[in-house]
């Protein structure tokens, strides 16, 4: 065969094979680079978020945070605890000149969740009945104190009978609590304390139950 023809064929084959290689190799490489770019963008966003979360966490004082949690837990307890409630209501009644004769938690309400009221956003409540005696003016003051006490309570009904001796009646309350929500805290869902939160926290200046006359409404 002619030597020139062979050389020409080899050159043609080289060009063809390079083109084939380009078609086979280049799209794969380009796709790999694009995928890496996408992963890089996502990871960079994660890093920025993590950085923000860790920086924010570092800026928080552990003791102050624990104190704030204690305060809000006093306002909205984790559970249906009755001991502090009984003492607190007694103190409020005494301050208003009302005698607290009886506090009635319906049977089973403390031990089970049967009578719980689902208020929303995870908040629950239990009804509590109070039997009281005293002047209507004192009772009005008592209800007002209950409504502005540190722990969140709501007065729903009042029955008053002047004919009773001594005059008195019943007050229906609901006591709120927020059970702890389980789950792992991820940096994506980590909240921050806003100015409005700080302002609200400022209204709870003590961890003691029922000691604050600060209006919360």
């Amino acid at each position: 065969m002619n030597r020139n023809l062979i050389i020409n064929m080899l050159l043609g084959s080289l060009i063809a094979s390079e083109l084939v290689a380009a078609v086979v190799v280049f799209p794969g490489k380009v796709n790999s680079i694009l995928a890496m770019n996408e992963e890089l963008t996502t990871t960079a966003k994660d890093v920025a978020g993590l950085k923000q979360a860790t920086t924010y966490l570092n800026s928080l004082d552990e003791k102050i945070l624990a104190g704030q949690v204690d305060r809000v837990t006093a306002v909205l307890p984790d559970e249906k605890k009755t001991s502090g409630l009984v003492t607190g209501l007694n103190d409020l009644a005494a301050a208003s000149g009302v005698i607290l004769k009886d506090i009635n938690f319906s049977p089973g309400l403390i031990a089970s969740s049967s009578g719980d009221i689902d208020v929303g956003s995870g908040v629950k409540a239990i009804p509590v009945g109070l039997s009281v005696s005293g002047e209507l003016t004192s009772l009005t003051d008592f209800v007002s104190r209950v409504q502005t006490a540190t722990q969140l309570l709501g007065a729903t009904d009042l029955n008053y009978n002047l004919a009773d001796n001594p005059a008195g009646g019943t007050v229906s309350l609901i006591v709120y609590y927020l059970p702890p929500q389980n789950g792992v805290t991820s940096w994506q869902s980590m909240p921050t304390i806003s100015e409005a939160d700080k302002k609200l926290l400022g209204t709870f200046s003590s961890v003691d139950l029922f000691t604050l006359p600060t209006p919360q409404r």
Partner: peptide, 14 residues
């Protein structure tokens, strides 16, 4: 922090 925020949200709601 999450507990604090949840409590504050609950308090506001109540």
């Amino acid at each position: 922090l999450v507990k604090l925020k949840n409590k504050l949200m609950g308090i506001r709601m109540v």
